[in-house]
Design a protein around this nucleic acid. Structure first.
Length: 894
RNA sequence: GUGGGGGUGCCGGAGUGGUCAAACGGGACAGGCUUAGGACCUGUUGGCUUAGGCCUACUGGGGUUCGAAUCCUCACCCCCACACCA
């Protein structure tokens, strides 16, 4: 009996001692960079982590065994809100909490047997890491890609603090339960929009990314083509500009809507009778949190009339202007033309009793919007649209755009949903933004040689306000330009900044003159295989792509895209729902690692489902895997007599199975179908058990099989594999031993599957015959059109099943004279199939068909002991014959 | 709502027009070996059966086809992501 837990401790110790998994860049060796999304250190591992790392480790190990120089690092995404919350709660420092969490997590990762190169480990809160965040920020600032502007935040007046979206619960502050409001604050942005087109276009080059991730990114960038239209205001000498992708609906516009943040609103209502009501409405809108405002679900449209009108440039109609919550200030122009062909506009109009009209219907006949229950958003034909009436709306988009442009009242433009990346966080636990505010020089970047701007230690975590604001040692500095006193920026960076380039840092984690050594990064990058949750499909992966491109423009790297191949693993569920603490349906992986062992946990998790799919946890399945591993071990411990002798058929059969297994496991791992790879190993282990029990083990065969078993298991159950490998008398380590190669000639010997059907293609029958003559039968599928051929095939299959060796089958075939009839048979094509292109166009009449069958094949079937009788379809009692070809000539065997 | 992915036997999952009652594995059941359990081995694992087959089956309806788990179509259900982007 093995003790899995003892075994895993033993090998973890030896891997560490012998530095088995440490790597150096080496231009003479093919590289492979395998990476899992580095975790936020929240404490112990959960099943999602275990799954993520089991997948990555299996693949990294596989690649390593295949001769690749594998970079497989691990680190920690260590800045962020939870640490600060924990600090507030425990009256401690976020660093203490985070370090503690990292330790717990790392211990478990080691316990799981992950083959990381731990010498490359870092955490994003290391000064040595985040100084490079600051460095990159300054470089971006220099290029104008980092800038400051006002943006709304969630604000809790009671705590005097900014709240992250996740700190807002039901519109209330998570700590004091007071109403959260929106507030405008000057904040830092990164100009990702400058890269919108490149980010969009290059998605096409990401061949090995899941289609859905690419679609999500495309939608997120949201490039759309439309037109900006200018509307003259009545009673004054100015105009407003709207953006629309649907100029075809312009004749139906009955109102304009402006975003409440739009500065124009105040201008329009200033000193009018509408001012008071409008300001009140805007205040109401602002009382909603950002989250509330930006979801459509169950969110009522809210707004009011501003007392101002505009003139529709195409028909001169007088159009009222409203303010409303559903219009977003930073998309398009912040003002939209509204009509009955948009659901949101429709709802708003109904609520505020604004008249509506349609100008598009399915066939172009007028329909009344006031009788409609919802907006008409489909395509159709225009009516009531002046000279454009009768035109298809898709064409009208083009034509009306041209028309408006010609009249000088608008211009076609491109718009993106993608917005600049707000990186300011009014928190302590993040990378300080390296900017100074000098009374005389204004906004001044910190000189590069003064980095890092370190987080101060003299802070308290009360939950009220940004702790940095209260740190005197931090805030006060001198201006690098004029030397006078200056104030430091107290905003810290979004943690997504940290994760946008960490994969580059792993290449040269100790490098001290730039974020990374460009030469070494050129060797390792891009990441060949990235594995992580789908939840990062948009933000993290888009930011990482953005950073890579920006760093390329800075001359730091030559690659365009950081991730070559991406795998998004599925969720782990229990009882059909995602495991979560709040639901209370979690299974602690630590328990399994300590009881059944890490190998069991790993193999189960890879075996239970394909990586991308949801994985339902199943304790019985875990027990099953545990038993399988024991069985595998028992094979190594076998005491059956092993002899050195010439190979018997049975030995060859086992060898054939081995090579077939190697082939299959290799292919399945390449395709990330670990469950099928493990299934194949299980199957192989079963064959080996049977072989062992036969008591006639051939020395070389047995040895090769067991060694291969250890090798094949190594990516999945590395500890047990090492133990087996050692027990088999090999030098350590199986983890870096070469992956077994399959030998096709040995697969061919395998007699298990001599299957013969009748194929519509002549060549296949020929090839089978030639193969048989060569005594190398292999799997061949014949597809037949006539029922009697099925019957023939079935009988033939039985004959094969009853025969033991290829030789016997061959003899049987030779005796029956199949080679003659093989040709004959394939030339028979029933009339009713004569027109299908797949089938050779040789048509014989039913009589011939029967003749050619009865002449030779009768003898063949008789050789198999199959009594036959040939009848015509109409005489047949065989139900299948009638079913298959009603009213057609047929022949069956009964 | 929009976009994506799915629904196959107890479970995971193959299969994407004809060797399909459906690979492979797990689980379950029965038997063997054991004092017993574990491990291991053998068999069974949709129903009926005179053992030749027959019937019912791949979410449900409708269709194409000589033939459908597989193709088309309409439903229903589940999962994931995004979310008032004009």
């Amino acid at each position: 009996m093995v003790n899995f837990v003892k075994v895993q401790e033993k090998w973890q110790g030896r891997w560490k001692k012998d530095r088995v998994f440490e790597v150096k860049s080496d231009p003479n060796k093919p590289k492979f960079y395998c990476l899992e999304m580095y975790p936020y250190p929240s404490g112990k591992l959960h099943m999602g982590h275990v799954r993520n790392y089991s997948i990555g480790d299996a693949y990294a190990r596989y690649k390593r065994m295949n001769g690749f120089n594998v970079l497989y690092p691990m680190g920690y995404d260590a800045f962020g809100l939870p640490a600060e919350n924990a600090a507030i709660k425990n009256k401690s420092h976020p660093k203490t909490w985070t370090q503690n969490c990292i330790k717990m997590m790392k211990d478990q990762q080691i316990q799981l047997g992950l083959s990381y190169d731990w010498t490359r480990e870092f955490a994003s809160f290391d000064e040595d890491y985040y100084r490079w965040n600051q460095w990159i920020f300054l470089k971006l600032f220099e290029k104008g890609l980092a800038y400051k502007k006002a943006a709304p935040i969630n604000w809790c007046a009671d705590c005097g603090t900014v709240l992250a979206n996740e700190q807002v619960e039901d519109g209330k502050c998570w700590r004091c339960k007071n109403q959260v409001t929106e507030k405008n604050l000057e904040q830092w942005f990164l100009k990702i929009t400058a890269y919108a087109d490149r980010l969009l276009e290059d998605i096409d080059s990401l061949e090995h990314w899941p289609e859905k991730v690419k679609i999500m990114q495309r939608n997120w960038i949201g490039k759309s083509f439309g037109i900006k239209i200018s509307w003259k205001l009545t009673d004054r000498d100015s105009s407003v500009e709207t953006f629309t992708t649907r100029p075809d609906t312009i004749f139906s516009v009955t109102f304009l809507v402006i975003a409440p943040e739009h500065p124009l609103v105040f201008e329009l209502i200033k000193g009018t009778n509408f001012e008071k009501a409008a300001l009140e409405t805007i205040a109401n809108i602002k009382r909603q949190t950002i989250a509330e405002r930006t979801t459509s679900e169950g969110n009522d449209k809210l707004g009011c009339f501003l007392g101002v009108h505009a003139i529709n440039p195409v028909n001169g109609e007088k159009i009222p202007i409203y303010v409303a919550n559903f219009v977003i200030i930073d998309y398009g122009t912040g003002i939209v033309m509204a009509n009955a062909h948009d659901q949101r506009d429709f709802e708003f109009a109904r609520k505020y009793k604004i008249p509506l009209k349609f100008v598009i219907s399915e066939d172009g006949s007028p329909i009344d919007a006031n009788k409609a229950t919802r907006a008409y958003t489909n395509d159709g034909i225009l009516f009531d649209s002046g000279k454009f009436s009768g035109m298809h709306n898709r064409d009208a988009i083009e034509e009306i755009s041209k028309f408006i442009e010609k009249t000088g009242r608008g211009k076609r433009t491109v718009n993106y949903k993608l917005r600049d990346w707000l990186i300011s966080r009014q928190r302590y636990w993040g990378t300080p933004i390296p900017i100074l505010y000098c009374q005389t020089c204004g906004t001044v970047p910190v000189p590069l040689d003064q980095l890092p701007i370190k987080l101060p230690e003299d802070v308290e975590f009360t939950g009220e306000g940004n702790p940095l604001l209260a740190s005197h040692t931090f805030i006060h500095a001198s201006c690098p330009k004029c030397g006078r006193s200056a104030k430091r920026e107290t905003d810290t960076m979004d943690t997504f900044v940290d994760s946008s380039w960490y994969f580059l840092r792993y290449c040269s984690p100790k490098y001290s003159s730039a974020p990374f050594d460009p030469k070494i990064a050129d060797y390792w990058m891009p990441v060949d295989q990235y594995i992580g949750g789908i939840e990062h499909a948009i933000l993290h992966l888009l930011y990482a792509r953005f950073f890579t491109k920006a760093l390329k423009d800075l001359g730091l790297t030559t690659i365009d895209e950081p991730i070559h191949r991406l795998l998004c693993q599925g969720m782990v569920t229990l009882g059909g729902v995602t495991m979560s603490k709040s639901r209370g349906n979690v299974v602690d992986p630590g328990d399994i690692m300590e009881n059944q062992g890490s190998d069991t946990a790993r193999v189960f998790i890879l075996f239970a489902a394909l990586p991308e799919k949801e994985l339902e946890w199943d304790d019985q399945g875990v027990a099953g895997v545990n038993r399988f591993l024991l069985r595998a071990w028992n094979l190594v411990e076998t005491d059956s007599a092993v002899v050195d002798r010439a190979l018997s058929n049975n030995d060859r059969h086992v060898l054939g199975k081995l090579h077939r297994t190697i082939q299959k496991v290799t292919q399945e791992i390449e395709d990330f179908r670990f469950s099928l790879a493990i299934g194949a190993i299980m199957e192989f282990a079963n064959v080996l058990a049977r072989y062992r029990d036969s008591g006639r083990l051939q020395k070389e065969v047995w040895k090769e099989c067991l060694n291969s078993l250890a090798l094949l298991l190594s990516p999945f159950a590395p500890h047990l594999a090492e133990e087996m490998w050692e027990r088999l008398g090999n030098k350590p380590f199986v983890s870096i031993a070469p992956w077994p190669k399959f030998d096709e000639s040995k697969i061919d010997i395998e007699a298990e599957w001599v299957e013969l059907m009748l194929q519509e293609a002549v060549s296949d029958v020929q090839s089978v015959l030639s193969l048989l003559r060569l005594e190398k039968p292999r799997e061949i599928t014949f597809i037949v059109a006539e029922p009697w051929k099925y019957e023939f095939a079935r009988q033939f299959k039985i004959a094969i099943a009853q025969s033991r060796t290829p030789g016997e089958i061959l003899k049987l075939l030779m005796n029956t004279g199949l080679k003659v009839y093989g040709q004959e048979i394939t030339r028979i094509v029933p009339k009713w199939l004569s027109d299908t292109s797949k089938i050779p166009k040789v048509v014989l009449d039913p009589q011939r068909e029967m003749d050619s069958f009865s002449e030779g094949n009768e003898a063949l079937l008789k050789a198999f002991g199959c009594p036959i009788q040939v009848v015509k379809e109409q005489d047949s009692k065989h139900p299948k014959a009638k079913q298959a070809m009603p009213g057609k000539p047929a022949i069956v065997i009964e």
